[in-house]
Amino acid sequence: MTQAMIRSENLVKSFGEVRALEGLDLEVAPGVIYGFLGPNGAGKTTTLRVLSGLARADRGSAFIDGLPVRMHDRHQLSNIGVLPEEPAFYGWMTPIQYLRDFAAPLYSIDIEEAGSRASEILDVVGLAYAASRRIQGFSRGMRQRLGLAQALIHEPQVLLLDEPVSALDPAGRKEVLELIDGLRGRTTVLLSTHILADVERICDVVGIIDQGRMVIEDKRDRLLNRYARPLIEVEAEGDIEGWAESVRRLPIVEHVDLLPNLVRLQVSQVETAQGELLRSLAQDSVRVRRFELIRPSLEDVFLQLTQSPDSVR
């Protein structure tokens, strides 16, 4: 069995009265892109801070590449790249100065290699055009790109990314996600994000954390198959409220959302439901504009696992 590259066991961390982590267990295999999901305040950033040695857990332990995580462990930090949620830089520096003259030498990269690597990585993150501009005037998106560049400058084995695309525009998000996607197999990536579509797009494994505990951790596809219920959307001309009320009583229908001219149904057996619903629509002479089977999304899984039991039927 392969040893996990990132592992935490029963991590507990409190801030005064607030329990940020409540016995968190986490396991990330080498070379995997791990999507770390959770609502605000679930404990994602605290987990990343503990793993990157910026904070210590009250109880439990964390390991990277089999070695226990300690604060300011220079050996361990030389194999890790960290991108905080809001990366901060010295405003008087330029990106090339930050990477070539500051970050790279701290990782003991020699000056010539530092120069070529810095230029290369700036090109990869799409900041080559601003390489010699002062960071002071950078937007949040540009800082996030530079944050990613500094996390990658030493080609780390492990990459800890806290909301790496939150400040980027759609094109920027696509570029950065493709870049992270390209690291699969070479670098172990722990990516915390709120953007479920991004996790769905690039992550191999997904962990959902809520109130400091791991709610579920599994391969993305297995998770979708297990938790995401199929949805059927019916759009009609005119009023379909009556029809929606009638199908609500069917045993295969688990939940009904009624919107103007649109009904969204959560069903237990797709094939049976499709047949029954189409028959029912014909019987009630509903003029159907669209009848569509919606692909289950991670958002459904996320909501199902993190919302209170009352809000999930």
């Binding site: 910026l54 300011h72 930090l77 960290v82 905080p84 830089f89 701290l106």
Partner: peptide, 15 residues
């Protein structure tokens, strides 16, 4: 305050 300390201390430096 600004967060540059966090960026610095995630690199192999001695505080």
């Amino acid at each position: 305050e600004r967060g540059t300390a966090a960026m610095l201390l995630t690199k192999p430096v001695k505080p």
